[in-house]
Design a protein around this nucleic acid. Sequence first.
DNA 1: TTGAAAGCGCTAACAA
DNA 2: TTGTTAGCGCTTTCAA
Lengths: 335, 335
Amino acid sequence: MEKVTIKDIAKVANVSYATVSRALSGSSEIGEATRDRILKICDEMKYIPDSVARSMVKRRTNILGLVTASINNPFMSELIEEIEITAREHGYNLMVCNSSYDVELEKRQFSLLLGRRVDGIIIIPVGHDTSASLSQYSSDIPTVYVSESLQDTNDHYVSIDNVVGGKIGIEYLKAKGHEKVLYLGRRPGSVTHKLRSEGAIEASASLGVRLQFQDNEEGGKSSSQVGYQLAKKYFENPSDNTAIFCASDALAIGVMQAADEKGIRIPEDISILGFDNITFSSLPRIGLTTVAQRKKDMAEAAVKMILDMIQGSEEDMKNQILSPVLVERTSCREV
Amino acid sequence: MEKVTIKDIAKVANVSYATVSRALSGSSEIGEATRDRILKICDEMKYIPDSVARSMVKRRTNILGLVTASINNPFMSELIEEIEITAREHGYNLMVCNSSYDVELEKRQFSLLLGRRVDGIIIIPVGHDTSASLSQYSSDIPTVYVSESLQDTNDHYVSIDNVVGGKIGIEYLKAKGHEKVLYLGRRPGSVTHKLRSEGAIEASASLGVRLQFQDNEEGGKSSSQVGYQLAKKYFENPSDNTAIFCASDALAIGVMQAADEKGIRIPEDISILGFDNITFSSLPRIGLTTVAQRKKDMAEAAVKMILDMIQGSEEDMKNQILSPVLVERTSCREV
DNA sequence: TTGAAAGCGCTAACAA
DNA sequence: TTGTTAGCGCTTTCAA
């Protein structure tokens, strides 16, 4: 069964195929009667325009590339879903590529998308280094980074204000009466973690909160396993902190597990505060109070930013930094 | 900055551009010296082949379309991640479209993908009706359904054996000493649920297990909210069942919540068994024992199936039904 | 082994 | 308002 083309339509309609093209594109340079007649024939013959051919001549694919560290990560998959929805509203499809937390693969995927002639690339990066790793392409294609703070680079990015997030967390705990807080899981290599902890430190200083640290020196990803290990170590020889502020929700879930095993009750014995608001956190039995990233807003900002770049818009802003917001559940108590 | 094309290379290399094309395609009809010289120039000039143009003439895009009910659903996002990985290993990229559990949108997304000239479409359907809704396209493009049993149709699909899954669940509970079991959350409209419960009924009959039902009459999606409601209703007037076999993990998590609120302990007071093995289930504090779908295997089978269809392979099998497997965690006890 | 040229399905500039 | 035609970047016959 052969695909029907614009020429087939033209033959049936007894017009040149340019006319068919005009009818389809909604051009004004065509008689209404002809247009309607052609459109009707297209419909009857089940004609579907060939986007590939169209892209060829228009030099635009209306495809956005997305390369993400992981598709199956609750934070990222939520972001991806919102990006897809927003992109579609603007007539774009999404080509999704997984970098599996591997900077080399990330680069290959990026380059592949370049060959696909996508109009722009949104990237949920493996880490802060991604920007340097991809710098050779930065002039080749509109690119927007999501969820990583890159103020030290020339890149376009959308992120939350991590310093403010750190502050919000401490302010919340202080308001609940916590004056001795453990900040758990800061990873030395991570810019994001650095900013979050800076905010926490600042707020602690000004509010008179004592802030201790249990850092993730190993430098591994902020997984619940790492949170579990760090908390286990801390609980072996705990200080008199009444709350633990975790650098991420994933860490916090590991902390909960460690507490459960020790018979330490949450929030009766210790309060736990997270950062990110991943899907897990809202689950019954988890109920993690956390500093939330607004994923829908980030997705919309990222798509808007990349479309602005594609259209060469004037008000092309280089970055967009959203405010985080505290989501209260059941893991923090009043002291 | 203009993109460099095959013609630019030809000019520099002093050959016809057909020769450049041959060098790039690894054709044998070319001198080794010329090939190497051309490839070197391509490299120096940072030439990236234009996939769009290539698709145009080859009538193949090397793109797989994926239409999924949701990207941000732990079961599906895991499936998608595996599909992307497998597709890439075969030289395919993935265009991911969200149908947001809406059959109408699902159809539009499918049709859009058709226009994109993707080589095949993998679909994680909204429901069993999807097959009928898309039947008009069935001859237009290779299509594979994932995770829905469609033996009553002519479609290609990959699913697990839900009947066997139902059996495995009951056999496991019986082996643990449970002889009175509540089957919770069966949704009348769902073929998948029908099969699962059939397996459970069969096994119960042959093993002498008493099986009661608490169906999801409302017919809403199998969410944790629905599980919560059903369990709440059941706990108001419970029977003497020692275990609850939930039609899905999502339901099971809601059941856990309802039990927690009632002060009913899991697994001490009642055992909970799920079905699917979504990411949540392995979380500390959840630890749900469940009948697992092997997502990686499903993804690989689906990609293999669609590639076979695309290549018009002989051994084009119409469906692949994988065996589920029981994953033991902490939500079921021995009685 | 290489080159010339047609053509994939469409858009857009120019002519009529 | 409609038709003619060139050409987007590439692959692939056919000739040389």
